[in-house]
């Protein structure tokens, strides 16, 4: 068992905490679900962890912009501790509502070591409502992102109403200059979706589905890697399974994409 310790936030309407904690556990980390208030009261200290995960859900019901109020609470009650956590070279993962939160906190994109500048946004999908669908993702292999090492493509579900990635032109340029746009929504053939619905499910600029900071240690994405932790989670599982049983091959040989677990394994193994 690795000594890597992962903290998974819970409480106030977050709802992917159990499976995210399970994913880190499967990746051989010591993972714990910790209530936001337990961090604030000091009952639990960030110092004891190598990885911090902001997870999916509807924090404070997302009534005033997804992840906004969670970001406010974290900033006012934990701001310095978070910056110290980053300073210490530890890893932060933000999934869906967690991505929205760390973007509002300014932890991403984190240009020039500034982790308090709010300059990108995740806003309402162009379709105007919540959507649950699977997407193809192109991984930027040049990116410094630690979480996506050795990955070239992924298939994961999106489950959000506010996932449209927005930023001004200069910010977008900086993101691509530093290969910080880690994940792009793609066509089944692996090329970027070019804004084409439903492959790009929300209208994100440049098909951006996930970004990291310049160090690659802070990573945020809208799709849910913790929702593909078992082969049967994949929508085509029964089809791959038929292929496999008839050809005597295993699921990967039949073309089944990698599990989202890889992202958690990359994070955990970074410390071992």
């Amino acid at each position: 068992m690795s000594k890597t310790r992962a903290l998974v936030l819970t409480g106030f309407g977050l709802n992917c905490d159990h499976e995210t904690a399970f994913a880190f556990k499967s990746a051989e980390a010591i993972s714990e679900r910790v209530h936001i208030n337990s961090l604030i009261t000091g009952e639990v200290s960030l110092d004891n962890y190598n990885i911090m995960a902001f997870v999916g859900g509807f924090s404070w019901a997302d009534d005033h912009g997804a992840g906004v109020i969670q970001a406010v609470r974290m900033k006012t009650k934990l701001g310095d501790k978070l910056l110290a956590f980053i300073e210490a070279g530890k890893l932060i993962l933000g999934i869906c509502n967690g991505f929205q939160t760390i973007v509002n906190l300014g932890l991403l994109p984190g240009f020039e070591n500034n982790y308090q500048n709010r300059c990108v946004a995740l806003t309402w999908n162009d379709c105007g409502r919540f959507r649950n669908d699977w997407v193809h993702l192109k991984v930027n292999t040049d990116s410094p992102c630690i979480f996506t090492r050795n990955l070239t493509h992924l298939e994961l579900p999106v489950r959000h109403g506010e996932g449209k990635f927005l930023a001004d032109e200069p910010v977008l340029r900086q993101l691509s200059d530093h290969s910080m746009a880690v994940l792009q929504y793609a066509l089944p053939d692996g090329t970027p979706a070019g804004g084409k619905f439903p492959f790009n499910p929300n209208g994100s600029l440049n098909d951006i589905a996930g970004i990291c900071d310049p160090t690659g240690k802070i990573f945020g994405l809208m799709p849910h890697p913790e929702a593909l932790i078992h082969p049967t989670n994949h929508p085509d599982y029964t089809r791959y399974h038929q292929k496999a049983t008839r050809t005597g091959k295993n699921l990967d040989e039949c073309g089944m994409p990698p599990l989202g677990l890889k992202i958690f394994e990359n994070a955990v193994s970074y410390f071992s």
Partner: peptide, 10 residues
């Protein structure tokens, strides 16, 4: 069906 989150909890 697509408006309902049917995969949360993994």
């Amino acid at each position: 069906a697509r408006q309902y989150d049917h995969e949360v909890q993994a």
